[in-house]
Nucleic acid binder design. Structure first.
Length: 476
RNA sequence: GGCCUGAUGGCGGAGUGGUGACGCACCGGACUGCAAAUCCGUGAACCCGGGUUCGAUUCCCGGUCAGGCCUCCA
């Protein structure tokens, strides 16, 4: 079963074939670190983390190189640094740390490389110099601009006829541009802004060149997969592509596959900093488990827009509850059984394969979730049938399938009791013992009173054949 | 103005030229001292109008509505 990915360039789902299966390369546009990132910014983080995992599953962990850049030179960063009266590195370090911590909470593996603009300056300047030499760029009034006329395929990725686009565009055309679509590679810094020396005078890079230079430096061109949000198709990726192709002598390939994730919607609109309808991942993670938020982010296909609201996260939490409950019950059942052998349950194995198959179909996560539930049902049925080896096999496969997607890594007990500290735990245990005594004496009013007391602690009791278990109820 | 998406049950959301996944929620039953969980079961949807077809939610055309990009943006 081959991996199929939708390619923005050709607007079709295609079989993925890396240039070198021993060295699969992926680059995804990362954050500008001037503030906390909102949950929409984390959709690509989670989506491409999933792809990273799938690629590692196929080609081997060592074979996949994943670079996600960090933009740490930017106007908004400058403004923030000026406001606080600190160097930009104070700002960028602070928010990069927060970003990485949030990404980790969402179950995202660290990319192989996380290049920063400030550490790529030499490569950026070298690439601009190369473009000037190739006559694909020109210097004008302290700026260096890319000459879009030099790239015949300009507009191909975004499917935009350039003339019509410019006709209806709302861009101010700087007088020193030869063509309205030309874009900045290097620009002078304003007073009190950070600047770097260059052959064209001190200044800093334009927005697009950093990614192309980082790709070249971290991974080497061409790369297999280039990803990012759908809004980056134009102009960012279009410009990256133009730079990348033209800076290679004689026009090289840039990326084999272009992938773009859709947006999160808040109500009728996309989540956007300028609209102000944002939910910060940092805040959400205080209210919900990161795993539930990850599930919510993957509950729709990555190319489709996804309605984002609290109910979505609640639904995701409930869905995970069900899966963890199966694991929990399977674990309890297995605890009293002799260790199982390497026998594999065929029905469960088929569902396990279905999860992988769904992911290989352009990361069809809704379909993969469906298979995950089918697999969970098989495990549940095995528990009901008291078939120890089928339970053991199915549980193993369920955990494995979950791991492929970045889920179900927690101990079920800690999933249900997350948020409970030791003090609460011992208090709950004591109350449960009291209640057990009351129940043994058939003192139902007392048993119910204790259950009420536990409920007041946000604890839900579940009586089972082997005694009572408990969990933290939904967050208020 | 130009370019581009999408419209599926109460909610989220796959998919398909021929009885409409999956999850969440809801309802009935079993189980339980009562619950919760679990099990069994029920109900519930393909924007509108044409066309192609034996048959369309699925393909084509038109429309309506919604959203995105063209400016920093995942």
């Amino acid at each position: 079963m081959s991996l199929k990915l939708y390619d923005t360039m050709t607007r079709a789902k295609r079989d993925f074939a890396p240039a070198d299966p021993k060295r699969v390369t992926m680059y995804v546009c990362g954050p500008t670190v001037y503030n906390f990132a909102h949950i929409g910014n984390f959709r690509p983080v989670v989506v491409f983390d999933l792809l990273f995992r799938v690629l590692r599953d196929i080609y081997g962990e060592e074979a996949v190189l994943y670079a996600a850049n960090v933009t740490d030179v930017d106007d908004k960063i400058n403004r923030k640094a000026a406001e606080e009266g600190v160097p930009i590195s104070v700002i960028t370090d602070r928010y990069l740390d927060a970003y990485n911590a949030d990404a980790a909470s969402l179950g995202a593996l660290r990319p192989t490389f996380q290049p920063r603009v400030t550490e790529t300056m030499d490569a950026i300047i070298a690439m601009i110099g190369d473009l000037v030499e190739q006559k694909a760029a020109y210097a004008a009034e302290g700026h260096v601009l890319f000459d879009t006329q030099a790239f015949g395929d300009y507009g191909k990725l975004s499917g935009r006829p350039m003339d019509e686009m410019i006709a209806g565009a709302r861009v101010d055309v700087a007088p020193y541009k030869r063509h309205p679509a030309d874009f900045v590679l290097w620009k002078p810094s304003k007073e009190n802004e950070p600047e770097w020396p260059s052959p064209w005078g001190p200044g800093r890079p334009g927005w697009h060149i950093e990614c192309t230079a980082m790709i070249e430096q971290a991974l080497g061109l061409p790369i297999d997969i280039h990803g990012g949000g759908i809004d980056l198709v134009f102009p960012h990726h279009e410009n990256e592509l133009a730079q990348g192709v033209c800076s290679g002598h004689g026009g090289r390939e840039y990326a084999k596959v272009w992938m773009h994730n859709g947006f999160l919607n808040m109500g009728e609109e996309k989540m956007s900093k300028s609209v102000g309808n944002v939910a910060l991942a940092h805040d959400l993670l205080k209210l919900y488990p990161g795993e539930a938020i990850r599930w919510a982010l993957l509950s729709g296909h990555y190319r489709q827009p996804l309605e984002w609201n609290d109910s979505l996260i609640e639904q995701a939490k409930s869905a995970l509850d069900r899966l963890y409950r199966v694991l929990d019950d399977a674990g309890r059942f297995l605890a009293g059984e002799p260790a199982a052998d390497g026998w594999q349950d065929a029905a469960a194995a088929a569902e396990h394969a279905a999860v992988r198959h769904a992911l290989h179909d352009d990361l069809n996560t809704p379909s993969a979730f469906a298979a995950l539930f089918q697999l969970a049902d098989k495990v549940r049925a095995a528990v009901m049938a008291k078939d120890a080896r089928a339970v053991a096999s199915g549980r193993g496969l369920l955990v494995e399938a979950g791991a492929l997607m970045g889920f179900l890594a927690a101990d079920p007990q800690s999933w249900f009791q997350s948020g409970a500290d030791d003090a609460l735990k011992s208090k709950v245990e004591a109350l449960l013992a009291d209640r057990q005594a009351a129940r043994a004496a058939k003192n139902w009013p007392e048993a119910d009173r204790i259950r009420g007391e536990l409920a007041a602690l946000n604890v839900e009791v579940m009586d089972g054949p082997a005694g009572a278990t408990w969990r933290i109820k939904e967050q208020a």
